[in-house]
Simulated scan of single mutants.
Amino acid sequence: MSCAGVLVLALLLDALVGEPDWAWKRAPHPAVLMGRAIEMLERNLNEGDNRFFNGALGIIVLAALAGLLGSAISHLPLGGLFEIIVAAILLAQKSLAQHVQAVADALRQSTEEARAAVAMIVGRDTQEMADDAIARGAIESAAENFSDGVVAPAFWFLIAGLPGLMIYKLVNTADSMIGYRNARYEQFGKFAARLDDVLNWIPARLTALILILASRKWSAWSVIRRDAPLHRSPNAGWPEAAMASTLGVALSGPRAYHGEMKDFQWVNGEGARNIGAKEVDQAVDALWSAWLVLLGIVIVLAVVT
């Protein structure tokens, strides 16, 4: 079976099953294992005068091991079946939609419940968030994680099979753990952060196109071209601007990290700012519409390859 054929089944399996609690209570999730390996790397190598070199070498070794493991799984008896299962585990469509929907549901109950729900999917301070800021955080997370957790894994699976997906997931996990510009990680995590930027460059822009195709709001492209570069990330601005412009809401803007306010520019600043559960519901609908477009693209590739 072609990579595209395997990916079709993996996308469907992920959408159907997601990440059931019963499974991961009995065994660690592959992303958790990757995280433990990165933690061990950081504890042992993030010291001395060559932190950048140590971090780069460590990530290269771990990525190579992840790729080799993916290749080994692919060559097992019934390797195609294992590829489908592992790829489905490393995709995140259903779990993403569930986490974002949980924020909308919580917003209908109380601000405190909504703050707790959005804290599960964003890295900013949530203790004093108003409802509109909670909704923005959930929608931004929906857009960025659809790119990082669905489109990019699918893209790298199509390019390089399960090894490509495993390498991408390892690098993306490393970026989320050590890719920060602070005293502890500035040097050690820089290679992982830059490599993650490279691996997400095409998928982020594909995500913006997929969101436009799903919404059929072609005029959104001019807003995306204008506002995507405003984002502090070279990639995250593309899906975020696409989601903002297709939903007609303003995203980004001021927010707090570790008690310090950051005056980020607005994305689609002319969009609605007084938003809440309804707009988060619309973001979840947009996720599934975009997923259907992605699935359709992969089905076409499976037919022609």
Rank of each mutant, 00 (worst) to 15 (best):
Ser2Ile: 03
Gly5Ser: 14
Leu13Asn: 05
Asp14Lys: 00
Ala27Asn: 05
Ala31Asp: 04
Met34Gln: 11
Gly35Pro: 07
Ala37Gln: 07
Glu39Gln: 13
Glu39Ile: 05
Asp49His: 04
Gly55Thr: 12
Ile59Pro: 00
Ser74Phe: 06
Leu78Tyr: 15
Ile85Asn: 03
Ile85Gln: 05
Ala87Gly: 08
Ala97Pro: 01
Gln98Phe: 09
Val100Thr: 13
Asp105Lys: 12
Glu112Asp: 15
Glu113Pro: 00
Ala117Gln: 12
Val122Glu: 06
Met129Ala: 15
Ala133Val: 03
Ile139His: 01
Ser141Tyr: 01
Glu144Ile: 08
Asn145Val: 01
Pro153Met: 02
Phe155Cys: 10
Phe155Asn: 09
Leu162Tyr: 09
Pro163Thr: 06
Leu165Tyr: 14
Ile167Phe: 05
Asn172Cys: 02
Gly179Phe: 04
Ala183Ile: 01
Ala183Tyr: 07
Arg184Val: 08
Val198His: 06
Trp201Lys: 10
Arg205Glu: 09
Leu209Phe: 14
Trp221Arg: 02
Ala228Tyr: 12
His231Lys: 08
Arg232Pro: 00
Gly237Val: 07
Glu240Ala: 03
Glu240Leu: 01
Ala244Arg: 02
Thr246His: 02
Thr246Lys: 04
Leu251Tyr: 07
Trp266Glu: 10
Asn268Ala: 13
Ala272Val: 09
Asn274Cys: 06
Lys278Phe: 02
Ala283Thr: 09
Gly296Ser: 13
